[in-house]
């Protein structure tokens, strides 16, 4: 049974990797993966706290987030496909229509 701190630390590392990937990487697919990492870090936290407090609400919430993440990925990938068809690229640094 790992300690609470260890779980939280791993969760922190996962989240940091996700944030760094979102901010640094240029490939949309990677960014989507990093978003998934962040979601799963949050899930890990939820499950850990649920276990510590002895309630099931956190676990149920983690399941909900997973389902939501699945939906989000479908939409995200669809957007990526549409974007690729439109712009012939999936590098975010080349998609800068909002540049002032």
């Amino acid at each position: 049974m790992p300690s609470m701190n260890a779980v939280l630390f791993i969760s922190f590392l996962l989240f940091s990797v996700g944030v760094a990937g979102v901010l640094i990487r240029r490939n949309v697919l990677i960014i989507l993966m990093c978003v998934e990492l962040m979601l799963n870090a949050a899930n890990l936290n939820l499950v850990a706290f649920a276990r510590q407090s002895g309630t099931v609400a956190g676990q149920a919430f983690a399941l909900l987030v997973m389902g939501l993440a699945a939906a989000e990925v479908t939409i995200g990938l669809a957007l990526v496909v549409a974007l690729y068809r439109k712009k012939d690229t999936i590098q975010v640094d080349q998609i800068n229509l909002l540049k002032g």
């Binding site: 979102v22 640094i24 975010v92 640094d93 540049k99 002032g100």
Partner: peptide
């Protein structure tokens, strides 16, 4: 204007 790089990241 400089702030509006257009890059989501």
């Amino acid at each position: 204007r400089k702030f509006q790089s257009g890059r989501v990241q």
